[in-house]
Nucleic acid binder design. Structure first.
Lengths: 338, 338
DNA sequence: TTGTAGGCGTTATCAG
DNA sequence: CTGATAACGCCTACAA
């Protein structure tokens, strides 16, 4: 293994000089820097991570805690994880993957051992058990999602309330009056998942303001459950012409079922999805959808952690604005405005 | 920060004794061990990861290199990544997430710096650029997927050839004669992705042996492309009654389209999917499917890496046997056997 | 602008 | 069964 000392010898300088050209923490004359860099590449030197962590009191690693639960749309989790990793690299950091089956102890382990300099928590719950641990250790952390008490924390999430409101507005603008919200599985609401509740709240409030009559129906997201959900909606409110869908699994089935029941989208029924662009694009008709910037979530989380590592005091809550993109699945409703 | 030395003082023993009760590398008398463990928990001691890596020449970290490409079914990637992480924990290892945008240099970086003791490569290509780097560094590695030259490596993958053959056999057994294979996007075959080609080979050979007439059609996996693919299949071979689908995105649309065209599954057409169980279960009808054990892939990869780290010489190639589960999407074809 | 030297917290060798 | 102590490779305050 090539060490810094060998590089120094080869370049005819002292070890500290090599260290400094690497870290850039002090001025180095051009010729010296050149000789050192030459030696580094000649020898194929790579600084030893363990030694660096020990001496520098910084592992240059952040931990990313991912949920095991699968009721969140997995591709999005992956997209965020990858965005976190790439963003971290920009800061010279690597990402350690922690699965939530370790529970709060996993966080304690990596933080207390100095394995990780910071932590990004995905899928944060309202009363998240990992947060007290973080607080106790004084760890540098960022949450993706909003806990009930964000005091002194750094959280970033989609503005789901705004997303729900966008859906209501869009359908109201088009002249729909009876609208159904097809949501996630009942257990998601039962455990008060923040994203589900906030979306619903945003939707409900805006719907009320716009005079929409609404129905909220949880849905497992399989074909069969979607069929059941749709049947119930049409039975309860036959006049329903607008659908807001926050359940990735239910989208394909719903379109298929509407088609099967003779309802043409968007002439007879409008569908607004809360989903990533890719999913919106690959359905037929392509879906009008409200999308939040998943990659941006990951990037921002990393920036929050880095800011804390550097001793900064970033904002407690950052909400990212979702965007509604009109595609082919929404059209005029039965009550045209003006 | 609590150090080993402080624990030693508190327990009234020498630092080395503390180290040994932790590592278990030499016998310790019961009373001593008890005092040390007491001190550890009293002080809340956690060994410093950097120091441990430096002194022990072992970071207790393995790197997991994930692809950025999205034409592989993402939930499976995630499942494997999580399985790798959990399996690694069983060995006292953590997992560092490396995205493939760093290319081969990412692997070099973590291996050469001693950041990772071993590497797991996902989505290995036939001529994978990362393999020469691994060979050059003499790194402890395992591949998920099969490269063209597996000499001296440790690889694990699904037995896609067997999976393809299972599909052909099942449909032949049911009395189907004209069968179409709906595959991944054209570019997947163009870059000679091993899993796609091996599945096709296994399918083709068994189909030939069983006297099936087959058609292979790549498919993008969107609704529209699936519609085009199906239309073309039915035009080219109107007598087609069996479908083998190796494209997760095409499954929902295909079922919907068959229904729309008046073909009842499984009475008029049989569909065999190559996909995870969850996906097979959530379609309607529930799909007869060939599934490989994704979690097992991850677990085995970890075992291969650990074996190499411990100086073992694990098998070069491990293939995991897929299983065909009969559900509701396949039934008798037009040429009943006997 | 560059060099010297002490220390970071563990491991493991060598004594006892 | 237990204790000293010398590495491990790098960082950084202090000197020059």
């Amino acid at each position: 293994m090539v060490t810094l000392a060998e590089v120094a010898r080869q370049a005819g300088v002292s070890p500290s000089t090599v260290s400094y050209v690497l870290s850039g923490k002090r001025a180095i004359s051009e010729p010296t820097r050149a000789r050192v860099e030459q030696a580094i590449s000649d020898l194929g030197y790579h600084p030893n991570a363990g030694a660096r962590a020990l001496a520098g009191k910084r592992s240059h690693i952040i931990a990313l805690v991912v949920p095991l639960r699968t009721d969140v749309y997995v591709p999005i989790m992956m997209e965020i994880a990858i965005a976190v990793t790439m963003a971290a690299r920009q800061y010279g950091y690597d990402v350690l993957l922690i699965t939530n089956d370790e529970g709060p102890e996993g966080v304690r382990r990596v933080a207390a051992s100095g394995l990780a300099d910071g932590v990004v928590l995905m899928d944060v719950e309202l009363e998240d058990e990992r947060i007290p641990v973080l607080r106790e250790l004084g760890s540098h952390a960022a949450m993706i999602g909003l806990p009930a008490d964000a005091h002194g924390l750094a959280c970033v999430d989609h503005d789901f309330t705004a997303a729900g409101a966008l859906c209501a507005d869009h359908l109201a603008d088009l002249g729909h009056r009876d609208v159904a919200f097809v949501g996630y599985a009942p257990q998601v609401y039962r455990r008060h998942a923040g994203y589900a509740e906030r979306t619903l709240t945003g939707f409900r409030e805006r719907a009320a303001a716009r005079g929409l009559r609404i129905l909220h129906r949880p849905c497992e997201g399989t074909y069969e459950s979607t069929a059941g959900t749709l049947a119930r909606i049409l039975e309860d409110r036959p006049a329903t012409t607008g659908f807001v869908v926050q359940n990735e699994g239910a989208l394909g089935p719903l379109l298929s079922l509407l088609r099967g029941s003779g309802r043409i989208v968007p002439e007879d029924a409008s569908v607004v999805a809360l989903c990533p662009e890719q999913l919106a694009e690959q359905n037929s008709p392509r879906l009008t959808a409200v999308t939040g910037p998943a990659q941006e979530l990951g990037r921002q989380a990393v920036e929050l952690v880095m800011s804390r590592i550097d001793g900064g005091a970033p904002p407690e809550i950052t909400l990212l604005t979702p965007v509604l993109t009109v595609r082919e699945s929404t059209g005029p409703g039965p009550f045209p405005v003006r």
